[in-house]
Amino acid sequence: MTPPEAEPGPRPQRVVVTSPRVGRRRPTTIASEIDAQSTVGEVYMRSLMRIQLRLALTVVGLLAATVGVLPLVFRLSSGVRRMHLLGVPLPWLVLGVGVYPVILALAVFYVRRAERIEADFTDMVGRERGPS
């Protein structure tokens, strides 16, 4: 987690010169690059989508590795299938109770990360707006 100020992204002012839309208006901010659908704007949008998708897939991967493997584990290991904990069969305890905190934890983890990604994006795009 790097603080947003230390973001080493490309400096937008430098690329403005190569923008294909110079004729119509002179984009000076990332926000206007995105509005103008310039190459630079596209790069920013693509990277935002890629980071968010990677985060979502990470959560799905974690869910598959914790909850998704359970049917296979139960199928393959009769030991696990018949194990008891506190007098209750383990599969009942896991599926009836244990799975829910895992799902909740993944949800909280996801929201924190996703909000952070968006805050960074807003900083990056919004910071450039201002007196220009």
Binding site: L55, A56, V59, V60, L63, V67, P71, P89, P91, W92, L95, G96, V99, Y100, I103, L106, A107, Y110, V111, A114
Partner: peptide, 24 residues
């Protein structure tokens, strides 16, 4: 029996999928 516990688990996890891919 126990295999049916996947119904409530799935109906809850469905909201996690909704959250990470679709909600916002």
């Amino acid at each position: 029996g126990v295999d049916m516990l996947w119904y409530p688990v799935g109906w809850t996890a469905g909201y996690l999928m909704l959250l990470v891919f679709v909600a916002a």
